[in-house]
């Protein structure tokens, strides 16, 4: 773990985020813009799967998903910059592992959705309801996003014991 921390601290990304005075707050802003894009786009689709927004076919609402993917990329890139800047703050922090756990849950749920459910979703008309399995997947997606936000917020309230 300590070797990984030392390697991260030696990267140019770490140097950049720590050297420039406004790099961290700007990266935080981009991280939150990503969060808003991700949550807004994916939650809108999830709600349509749950039955909110009848009158539009789910596959049409799915057109928002690429914006959510863009948001995820923005948040992931800046998140990696934060970790490289202060790795000890993350690797000795239960909130970080909670966040990673729910990110994995979100990823596995997305894999399950696209491999087992999306084929059905594509066939639904504007007033069709999704299957129970699709609704469960949408609920898991919403829950995982809120949990990721919660763990992300708790990150700053735990400080590493050292030696870093």
């Amino acid at each position: 773990m300590e070797a990984l921390i030392e390697w991260l601290l030696a990267t140019q990304l770490s140097d950049f985020i720590l050297t420039y005075r406004w790099a961290w707050p700007i990266a935080e802003t981009v991280h939150f813009v990503g969060l808003v894009l991700l949550f807004g786009s994916i939650a809108t689709f999830d709600f349509r799967v749950l039955g909110v927004g009848m009158g539009i076919a789910p596959r049409a609402v799915h057109r928002l998903v690429p914006f959510g993917v863009l948001g995820f990329c923005l948040s992931a890139l800046t998140g990696f910059a934060f970790i490289s800047g202060t790795p000890d703050q993350y690797f000795y922090n239960w909130a970080f592992y909670g966040k990673v756990t729910f990110l994995v849950v979100m990823g596995l749920n997305a894999i399950y959705f696209y491999s087992c459910i999306y084929a059905e979703i594509k066939t639904l008309g504007p007033y069709d309801s999704a299957s129970r399995l699709a609704k469960v997947s949408a609920c898991v997606s919403l829950f995982a996003m809120v949990a990721i936000m919660c763990c992300g917020r708790m990150l700053t309230f735990f400080r590493p014991p050292g030696p870093f």
Binding site: V36, L37, L38, F39, G40, A43, T44, F67, M145, M149
Partner: peptide, 17 residues
Amino acid sequence: LFLHTLGLGIVAGFSVA
């Protein structure tokens, strides 16, 4: 602080969508 972020995610998220 988490509630403030969650509220932001919901209001700004759906507004942006």
